[in-house]
Design a protein around this nucleic acid. Structure first.
Length: 256
DNA sequence: ATGGTCGGCAACCGA
């Protein structure tokens, strides 16, 4: 079974890239973030024509999540359990015994901005969400753009990023606390020392040799799934393609 | 240290 995640930075502007990626990599499940579209405007027919089911929740201009799958989900819900629930940032789908939670965590803007405190709180609320609904024995995948680089290896020049909202110690601690529910970072499980990134800021000149990037997108799994995980990888940076996203697709393969 | 480029959407905001 293959599970994938991709911050597509507008599903309408990158529909062809996403459909091509689905056809080439044939995941069972693909979690999308930043679809940036209201539900009525989501290009659902294009997915259906290609044989995919989609659970989606969006809004105008910002945020938006979707779970694309070969088989239809048995259960779908959106948002955290407390207000503001941020439905366009969290999608949950159940496929038989398998649960998938797809999140687009708030970026945080600046350390002294209210959105950064909100981001830290978001991780705490998400941990509560996991504790309320699941146990570490639940076959559960947590995927998405989490807007935090976990370790020094996960960001270029970490010593210059200590005051960045995606690497500051407090957000790394908040992430680790949510992970402590019982998750394993599948990319790092399979590639313990590999320097690879899932995000390259549009504003930084793209230089594959320099690789100025961040690993802020994840597939995390509870023990029953981490134990049967075979491989995980970040796909090539699609900067050579027309209309590349600033994020890369990544995926994990599990035994069926 | 600063600024750099996108997408959405119609002036700038968010990343």
């Amino acid at each position: 079974m293959r599970i994938a995640t991709f911050n597509c930075n507008s599903i309408r502007s990158r529909l062809d890239i996403v459909l091509r990626w689905l056809a080439d990599h044939t995941p069972d499940i693909l979690c999308l973030q930043e679809t940036k579209v209201q539900d009525a405007e989501f290009p659902l027919d294009a997915f259906r024509l290609a044989g995919w089911h989609v659970a989606l929740k969006g809004e105008k201009s910002y945020n938006g999540v979707a779970i694309v799958s070969k088989k239809p989900a048995d259960e779908i819900s959106f948002g955290l359990d407390s207000e503001p629930s941020d439905a366009p940032r969290l999608a949950h789908a159940r496929f038989g015994k398998l649960h998938v939670v797809n999140t687009y965590v708030p970026q945080g803007r600046e350390l002294d901005h209210a959105m950064y405190a909100y981001k830290l709180e978001w991780f705490a609320r998400l941990k509560k969400y996991f504790e309320t609904r699941f146990t570490p024995a639940t076959p559960l995948l947590w995927c998405g753009d989490l807007n935090v680089a976990r370790q020094p290896i996960d960001v270029t020049h970490p010593e210059t990023k200590t005051n960045h909202v995606c690497y500051h110690q407090a957000v790394r601690d908040a992430f680790e606390d949510a992970i402590s529910f019982g998750f394993t970072d599948l990319f790092r499980q399979h590639n313990p020392a590999l320097v690879d990134y899932s995000f390259y800021d549009y504003r930084a000149p793209f230089d594959p040799g320099q690789k100025r990037g961040w690993r802020i997108d994840y597939v995390l799994a509870t023990p029953p799934l981490a134990q049967i995980s075979i491989a995980a990888a970040i796909d090539i940076v699609p900067r050579t393609l027309p209309k590349p996203s600033d994020h890369c697709p990544l995926y994990a393969d599990l035994k069926d």
